[in-house]
Each structure stands twice: as structure tokens, then as C-alpha cells.
Design a protein around this nucleic acid. Structure first.
Length: 285
DNA sequence: AACGGAACCTGAAAGC
DNA sequence: TGCTTTCAGGTTCCGT
């Protein structure tokens, strides 16, 4: 279940597998992932084309093909791109297969929240165009972020998950960044925006969490933290009831906007413009 | 216009 | 043991 770091890793992998290669075989079994697109039309559009460039913005991947067609991939909650042998048959939950002369790349997606969308002539994708700044592609300008946050009264946690605020931040990265910046997830975004130092701290924390996750998860085949047997590399996500890695208080779980947030009620402060939080230790993570 | 909640799916884990 | 409930990191749509 991918956020920015997982999609970045998928993009790098796909680039190393497909960039410059011609698609010799394309298989697209009909599924919800195609969202109303006729599978045959899409296969026909892609087969024989060369993959020229791959880029990521937020949680979207864009593949530019020879001849001007563009393919957009969103991994939803359970999508992943993996490398298999060309002699391997269909994998469990396989929704797409792209073979080149040397490789066989498969898209697997059990829950079918992912999407594969084609623009035959490179037509823009509204969801891509609506994305806010991407922390890795564009960096985070704390003044711009502050101005954006000042425009909403929602909680900072919910605001961070809005893809027009920062592209690619999801439930895990939002929770992790807020913990790193010692900001309470229920603090109103516009209140936080009144404290430029706190916004700068949050911007740094978002980048630090993304980069930490990238280093931790990089590899040819990602295991998402929710999958059975997966280890959990995160500081607070999925750790309700465990001790805070910084101050040892028991981590709490609350629900915001229908999604769970884990945080430390002792060292994440509820109000901007007040120092405190009762946590004296400062440890690099 | 902005926001909250339900809907979209399947599978694993927890609860009874 | 087996059935039921809950939960999961995505977006979108609909009603207020």
C-alpha cells in the first residue's frame, strides 16, 4: 500500500527494467484497474511501442511511449510492479503484463484500487495536473506550505493527506512526519501555519521521513508493511500501544477522516506557538 | 467551497 | 474450530 517512497522505488525499478525497451508483448486481462478502458484497445495502443521516459509525481507514475502515447499508473492500496521470468505464467492477482526482449514485468493488485490509464496522444490527466508540489521532485518550500495550510481549518494530519497540498504524502508519511516534528495530529492546519518555525520543522520532517523510508525499502520487490510477515520500519505507524521511541509514553491511536493516526500524546504538542510537550530527550532518528 | 462519510475491493487478523 | 467483525497506507463521489 504505497505512498510517495514506495511509488518512487517502483518508478526507479520500472525505469531500470523498461526505459529504452520495446514492448514485445502486452497482456491486460479485463479488470477494474483499467476503469472502463477496453483491454484490447489498450493492448493495441501499447504493443510494439518503445518506453521512452518514466517519471513520478505524487503517487502517480507516467510512462511516455514512442509515438506520443502516455500511460499513467496508480498503485492504489495494494498495487505493485514486479519482475518475473518470461517463462512464468500469470501470477496471483496479475492485472497487466509487459514483456520486452529480455524481461517480463507484471502489475499485481489484489484489491483493485489501482489504475492503469492511457492517453493515446499524451492528453493530460486531470488527477496529475491537480497535484500540489512533490516533496522530492520540487522540494518543500516552507513559506508556500504555510500559505497553503493557512487556508484550511482541517486538522494538520488530514491537510497533509490532501494531494493538492503536497503530492505523495499519505497516512503513514503524515503520521511519521508529525511525530518527527513533534506536532499533534489534531492541531488545526491554520493554527500551525501561524508558527513559521513549526512549518519549517514539519517540512524538514516530511523530507526526513520520506528519505528514511526510501533507504529502508529500496529493492527490486517491495513488501508493504500491511502484508503478512512484513516487518515494520516506521517509528509510530502501526505501533499503537508500544512505547514512543523518543519518550517511552504509550503511543495512542485515533481516527481522523476515517483513517487511523498513531501519535505520542506526550511529545507531540497540540498548539503551535508554545514550546513544550514534556519531552527532554533529543535523539537523531 | 469545504468538509465528512460512504463506496469501491479482497484478505488477514482479531474477537466470539 | 469456525463464523463474524474489523481493519488496511488509495481516490472518488455525494450530500450537507
Amino acid at each position: 500500500m504505497p505512498e510517495l517512497p514506495e511509488v518512487e522505488i517502483a518508478t526507479r525499478n520500472l525505469r531500470s527494467w523498461l526505459a529504452g525497451e520495446r514492448l514485445t508483448r502486452v497482456e491486460l486481462p479485463s479488470s477494474r484497474v483499467l476503469r472502463g478502458v477496453a483491454p484490447e484497445a489498450l493492448s493495441k495502443l501499447l504493443a510494439g511501442k518503445r518506453v521512452e521516459t518514466l517519471e513520478r509525481r505524487g503517487k502517480w507514475i507516467r510512462l511516455a511511449l514512442s509515438g506520443g502515447a502516455v500511460l499513467h499508473s496508480h498503485l492504489g492500496m495494494t498495487g505493485k510492479w514486479v519482475l518475473r521470468d518470461r517463462s512464468d505464467g500469470p501470477q496471483k492477482y496479475e492485472r497487466a503484463r509487459f514483456d520486452t526482449r529480455r524481461r517480463s514485468v507484471r502489475y499485481l493488485d489484489p484489491r483493485l484500487f489501482g489504475r492503469l490509464l492511457a492517453s493515446p496522444h499524451g492528453e493530460p490527466l486531470a488527477a496529475w495536473d491537480a497535484l500540489g508540489p512533490d516533496p522530492l521532485v520540487d522540494g518543500i518550500d516552507a513559506r508556500v506550505l504555510g500559505a497553503t495550510l493557512a487556508r484550511t481549518r482541517r486538522s494538520i494530519k488530514e491537510a497533509l493527506m490532501d494531494q493538492s497540498v503536497l503530492a505523495g504524502v499519505g497516512n503513514i508519511q503524515a503520521a511519521e512526519a508529525l511525530w518527527r516534528a513533534r506536532i499533534h495530529p489534531q492541531l488545526a492546519a491554520d493554527r500551525l501555519a501561524r508558527d513559521p518555525a513549526a512549518v519549517r520543522s514539519l517540512a524538514r520532517a516530511i523530507l526526513a521521513s520520506i528519505e528514511f523510508t526510501l533507504r529502508d525499502e529500496a529493492g527490486p520487490e517491495i513488501t508493504y508493511v500491511e502484508e503478512p510477515g512484513a516487518r515494520n520500519p516506521f517509528k509510530v505507524y502501526g505501533r499503537a500501544g508500544e512505547p514512543c521511541p523518543r519518550c517511552s509514553a504509550s503511543l495512542k491511536r485515533i481516527v481522523q477522516g476515517g483513517r487511523s493516526t498513531v501519535f505520542c500524546a506526550r511529545c507531540q504538542r497540540r498548539s503551535a506557538l508554545t514550546s513544550g510537550g514534556g519531552c527532554a530527550t533529543r535523539r537523531r532518528t
